[in-house]
């Protein structure tokens, strides 16, 4: 029974990783930008939610309504005024710039908060659970999993069915041609980053409810997002969902074998995918969003 339980918990944990990774996947898929500050922005979102919750005494889920749109705006501005400028120089420059952002955010958080770890208290949501077929399933992990799936389905529909989504894909395929048919490439890249940052905010708050965080927690989390993206296949959103689930499963099943083996098991699966199927479980073609 405990193995069945581990599988369920692993899949649900995968939802959190997928939610966290889809912003990274979108930024890479559309702009070929690897955002090294991705994890730090998620931590920043959690701190922001903490300030809102304690300052206005509103429930945690309400804070998301403020943090996610705010992050959308931040994403647009960061893309247009920081990342785009480095993208114009060379793709490698974006690595340096986002790495710089990562360090700035960490130190700013250390200055503004402290090195102590914090967590977002969500009351019944975090501790409550229901029983299905003898398994205890937490409300929070189900909520996060459903959110992750909804976000990824929504993103896919956005990319394949809307005018702006098509402009994004066009700009991703060939910026110059997109520009030649009237697409404002810088604007649509800003929008893509805004959406990605919105999902980062969701994931940051989700992570904050799931476990504690401190100013330096970003890079450690970034690794999980990377692994989910690479396991699934670079630039494919369905792949990212699958990659998150595979990573979550590996970690939970690993810790079932030995409590200390969980995270390592995830890394091993990641390495195995890199070695035997470097283009990921669902290769890039899926991005074509039929």
């Amino acid at each position: 029974m405990s193995w069945v339980n581990a599988v369920v918990q692993g899949i649900l944990l995968g939802g959190l990783y997928a939610l966290f990774a889809c912003g990274l996947s979108l930024m890479f898929g559309v702009m070929k930008v690897v955002n090294l500050a991705h994890g730090d922005f998620a931590v920043l979102a959690a701190y922001l939610a903490l300030v809102i919750v304690s300052g206005f005494e509103v429930p945690i889920l309400w804070s998301v309504l403020l943090v996610a749109p705010l992050f959308g705006l931040v994403g647009y501005v960061v893309q247009r005024f920081i990342i785009q400028r480095s993208l114009d120089v060379s793709p490698l420059t974006t690595l340096l710039v986002t790495f710089g952002l990562s360090i700035v955010i960490q130190n700013a958080l250390l200055e503004a908060a402290s090195a102590n770890s914090e967590s977002l208290q969500s009351g019944i949501l975090a501790s409550g659970s229901f029983q299905v077929a003898g398994l205890h399933v937490g409300y929070l992990s189900v909520l996060i999993f459903v959110t992750a799936t909804a976000v990824i389905v929504g993103l896919q529909l956005f990319l394949s069915r809307t005018s702006l989504g098509r402009q994004l894909r066009a700009a991703s395929d060939d910026q110059e041609t997109a520009s030649s048919v009237g697409v404002n490439v810088r604007h649509v890249f800003g929008v893509a980053a805004g959406i990605a940052f919105g999902t980062v905010a969701l994931a940051g708050v989700a992570f904050g409810m799931y476990s504690s965080f401190d100013p330096a927690a970003g890079p450690q989390r970034l690794i999980f997002a990377f692994e989910a993206v690479v396991i699934g296949g670079m630039g494919s959103l369905w792949g990212t969902l699958l990659g998150g689930i595979v990573l979550g499963l590996a970690q939970v099943l690993g810790s079932q074998i030995d409590p200390g083996f969980g995270v390592l098991a995830g890394h091993i699966v990641f390495l195995a995918v890199l070695a035997f199927r470097p283009s990921g479980l669902i290769p890039q073609v899926a991005q074509a969003a039929q």
Partner: peptide, 20 residues
């Protein structure tokens, strides 16, 4: 030729119709 390789022929033209 520089088309949007991952998009359908129809979508290639549709982007131009929407924006241009």
């Amino acid at each position: 030729p520089r088309s949007f390789e991952h998009m359908t022929v129809f979508e290639n033209v549709l982007v131009a119709v929407h924006r241009g």
